[in-house]
Design a protein around this nucleic acid. Structure first.
Lengths: 211, 211
DNA sequence: GTCATCATGTAAGCCGTTACATGATTGC
DNA sequence: GCAATCATGTAACGGCTTACATGATGAC
């Protein structure tokens, strides 16, 4: 999930981690991922050759690179550590704290792999796929939508079936008690139907565009 | 989350783990929890005194207890193990594989604690709370609904705000590309509004019942 | 010069999953 | 007797969170 999010966002534009997190928060409606999960993921993807740290391009943040790493070489342990870090930073980055990532061609391949993966996924992942599916060939996009539709149809059937065998012992007082349970189920059903209607609209749009 | 689910379901009726999982699956619409998570949770709750294993009551499954553990005492390691297990089973359970749990008074307290906890939670947990809120005093129930409503209002505001600064560089081709992103956001917004409308209905019902 | 924000990372731990292992019950 | 299902558990691992630690930049 996190890989899909990162690769998808970087496809549009080179970004550093902090900015990436903000964008992702907007994409998923507030509930973003945490730094503790984002930065290790970025490191992993970079190590795997799917991302590359680039010399801060014009787009994200301040433009002027002026990288010169003069190391004062103090005696303290802390000083040594800081110097080491500064040197490492100077090697890898343009000028300052930011580390801007760019999608490599392998990363692009991986993104398409993740978008086309036919195994059913959770709601969040599907949302991400929709967000990034504009880059997909129309046929793959249609597939994505239809797979999701099938999945939701199954869910809906299960939901209805579960609603069937409602309390055989229907003795008065009980009637009022699980009123909330029934309301919940009804609402869930409607939510799925709402999702299905949306998917149908998307699919109709695709078919229309195909002509 | 899993604690809430277990305690809430056991409040209605004594159940064994396997049955519990099935009910939970119905409650959450298909996507149940796994055994690998359920059984350890049951063990933990039993150890904590929130649940107690009872001698299979009349309700869940076959009624007749006839527990007699005659141990053949074979020489093999496997045999010893089996015998040990059988003995352990005989001590703890009525007659067969099933281990039926019952909610203790401490478990009941914990359930109310979980239902009344005012910290905002994820959607799944809220669904569970609604499913079990029939046991709550009306005021607590109303509180639950209104806290959720406030939470959703915030989400909705964030959503709208995120939708504001849409691509300042609105140059033609771009227009068509993130059509899917916009559709997704619109759908998300509608979903939240749908949830809010439901909550409003629930709250109205509570106020009406309060009179 | 200090405070808020930007920015990157590490460590510990929680919560859940899949895969594995075992055995009882029931229907044919 | 054999298979499907019911039933309970353990072990390994994955992904994400919180809390912690560090430092740069900019505004006042």
């Amino acid at each position: 999930m996190i890989d899909l999010a990162i690769l998808g966002l970087l496809r549009e534009q080179d970004l550093h981690g902090y900015e990436l997190k903000k964008r992702l928060g907007e994409l998923l409606g507030g509930r973003s991922i945490s730094f503790g999960s984002l930065y290790p993921a970025l490191a992993r993807l970079e190590k795997g050759g799917l991302l590359a740290a680039v010399d801060a391009a014009s787009d994200p943040g301040a433009p002027g690179p002026s990288g010169h790493a003069h190391v004062p070489s103090s005696g303290s342990l802390k000083g040594e550590l800081a110097a080491f870090r500064a040197a490492r930073h100077a090697l890898r980055r343009g000028n300052r704290g930011k580390k801007v990532y760019s999608l490599t061609s392998r990363g692009m391949d991986r993104l398409h792999e993740l978008l086309n993966d036919p195994t059913p996924t959770d709601d969040r992942t599907f949302a991400l796929r929709v967000a990034f599916c504009g880059h997909l060939p129309p046929a793959a996009r249609l597939d994505l939508f239809e797979r999701r539709r099938a999945q939701l149809h199954i869910r809906l059937a299960e939901q209805r079936q579960a609603g069937q065998h409602n309390d055989s012992n229907d003795n008065g007082r009980d009637h009022r008690r699980d009123r909330y349970l029934r309301s919940l189920r009804e609402h869930d059903t409607q939510t799925i139907e709402h999702d299905l209607a949306w998917l149908d609209r998307l699919i109709a749009g695709e078919r229309q565009a195909a002509q």
